[in-house]
């Protein structure tokens, strides 16, 4: 998979195919010219008083604002503030992450005592969010197929003081059976279109698909996750791309292969229903219960989230 810089001038042509599904398309294109706001999640496992973090960052020149309706999330100004170089980061009090990236774990609703698999876990923003949500009392299997990425995940688990996770290095598609998982998160590798926006260098960054068949990989991961979760259990499938071929079409594949239903969720950010038709293909009507999030409406990365229940 090669990386390619997408010039900002190329963006309108690239995204044109989504004109009908992205609300207020021109506004979306305009929004891509602005850099992403900076956010972090507070880690109360290590920092029992949020004042310590807020005052510490303010002393270093940052302005910190709580995000409405998203407890423990804060926006930081200026947006190029080096959060990664602060004491608060070093001590594991904060995890810099974009807002919409918190949505899949909200859909997952982790509870203490549950067995939870995070299938594509590295570098660990969602694994650590799961640990926090369950007060470090869920049993989390954090898996990633690449050792270099797993190293970053292990470092973040340590930094945030998580004691409820073990790490494994399997290809998700062949993750072994045997653990009665209550919930599984498949935050699948994707083309990352939701991240496209003007960087500080004035260009958009994206990963070119090249010869990698992402939808095939995503289908493999999702089907395996479904087969691993216990009957009545939950699989959350998410990506940070706009492309229906990596979103609805992948979930549609599962719904046709297995006995599953999509569960509607409440989210604290503006969203739209999943689409049920794309380029002449009609999808399973359940997909209307999935959720699409767009950068210009969330001030964040574009996301897709589907909460799926295993019926049999």
């Amino acid at each position: 998979m090669g990386t390619k810089m997408l010039e900002l001038s190329e963006a309108p042509a690239y995204f044109e195919r989504y004109r009908k599904i992205i609300p207020r398309f021109e506004e979306f294109l305009e929004h891509l010219k602005r850099p992403l706001p900076l956010y972090f999640r507070l880690n109360e496992l290590k920092c029992p008083q949020e004042e310590i973090v807020l005052k510490g960052l303010e002393r270093q020149g940052a302005k910190v604002f709580p995000v409405p309706n998203l407890p423990r999330f804060f926006r930081v100004e200026p947006r190029d503030f080096p959060l990664g170089n602060t004491e608060e980061y070093y001590l594991g009090y904060i995890y810099p992450m974009t807002l919409s990236s918190a949505l899949p774990v909200m859909a997952l609703e982790p509870q203490p005592g549950e067995y939870i698999l995070d299938m594509c876990a590295a570098p660990g923003s969602k694994t650590t969010q799961i640990a926090q949500a369950a007060n470090d009392q869920a049993v989390i299997v954090a898996n990633d197929r690449r050792l270099d990425r797993l190293t970053a995940l292990v470092a973040n688990l340590k930094r945030l003081g998580v004691a409820s996770a073990l790490t494994t290095l399997y290809r998700g598609e062949v993750f072994p059976f045997g653990v009665p998982f209550d919930k599984i998160l498949v935050d699948a590798p994707c083309s990352g279109e939701g991240r496209y926006r003007q960087g500080y260098e004035g260009e958009l960054l994206y990963q070119k698909e090249g010869h990698t068949n992402l939808p095939a990989i995503q289908k493999g991961l999702l089907v395996r996750a479904f087969d691993l979760v216990k009957v009545g259990g939950i699989v959350v499938y998410s990506t940070c791309t706009i492309n229906p071929e990596e979103n609805e079409m992948v979930v549609d594949y599962l719904l046709r292969k297995r006995q599953a239903q999509i569960i509607s969720c409440q989210y604290p950010l503006p969203h739209h229903p999943g689409i049920t038709e794309w380029e002449g293909r009609v999808f399973h009507p359940e997909l209307i219960k999935a959720a699409r999030f767009y950068p210009h409406e969330t001030e964040s990365v574009g996301f897709f989230v589907a909460k799926i229940k295993r019926l049999f």
């Binding site: 005592g113 299997v141 998580v162 409820s164 494994t168 072994p176």
Partner: peptide
């Protein structure tokens, strides 16, 4: 709830 099913996994790290 039960440790045995987890012990069948080939792990890289366990806990803190």
């Amino acid at each position: 709830p039960e440790l045995r099913p987890l012990q069948n996994l080939q792990v890289q790290t366990v806990g803190l």
